[in-house]
Amino acid sequence: MAALVAVPLLASAAGVGKGILLVGIPYAAFAIFLGGLCWRVVGWARSPVPFRIPTTCGQQTSLPWIKSAPLDNPSTGLGAVGRMALEVLLFRSLFRNNRAEIYDQRYVFGDSKWLWLGALAFHWSLLVILLRHLRLFVQPVPAFVLFMGKVDSFFQIGAPALYLSNVVVLCALAYLLLRRLWDLRLRYISQFSDYFALLLLLGTALTGVLMRYGTRVDVVAVKRLAIGLATFQPVVPDGVGIVFLIHLLMVSALAAYFPFSKLVHMGGVFLSPTRNLANNSRMKRHVNPWNYPVKTHTYAEWEEEFRDKLLMAEIPLDEAKHD
């Protein structure tokens, strides 16, 4: 008798639980992500940029016959956009991390670009992977997504074909993590949140890879879920599997954690006043919205104080103020 009541109850409870896990949490996480990110960006944007303080990394624009560095020290808005593009797309500043080793009286450059390479590899492959996921959310799958998948699996290793971006992202993450553990200086400065973010990303990537090449998941079910989520008509499919569930929860955790952690650097980089401003402060006045009057020592006060000395030294006094 009791069993007759308990079984349907448990089943419906399980159904509700599954709904929370597959629909509720992703929605909540995504809402926190969007809301939080907006809150952060608006927060930054609300603080003004009182002074024009670009870090100049090349020759200024001055005399017409001196070659300036339009991207490293832009004097126009367009140049600043170019500088930002180099920064955001190619990590220009990290690339600058060079060294001059001297072997046999000559300089050998390079060899110090590992951080640049690791960071670039990680961010770009992450972007490719995110875009590739569109094939789960959109029906029909956009042509560029299919094309990207083809290029990504160009080498046709194994079946299903190995995505290069998966290999790259795992290697890059492993490098970034090992570097933090290996380099004493970095270990000294690293905080819990640094490891947490890396481990979360690593876990997400590993479960994703596992689903593709190891424990196969029911892609049709996952796609039903994804499209349901994307179109706000959520369905709770059966048989998505435990690995998928972990993957989804980790992504949700990452999204919800994002705005409150150092991961917001993604949004912040665009607002950095040392990078996104043109170095034209002597060409065009930059206005500080909170510029307030201050106490100065005026010429009249100064002249009054040093009148005798000025007269003695025959330095002309101000006629306007002097009879």
Binding site: A100, D183, Y188
Partner: peptide, 16 residues
């Protein structure tokens, strides 16, 4: 200090 030892040891650049 400990953190510095590795840097002093590993970094070979004369100027860095």
């Amino acid at each position: 200090p400990g953190e510095t030892v590795r840097f002093l040891t590993a970094e070979r650049d004369q100027f860095r």
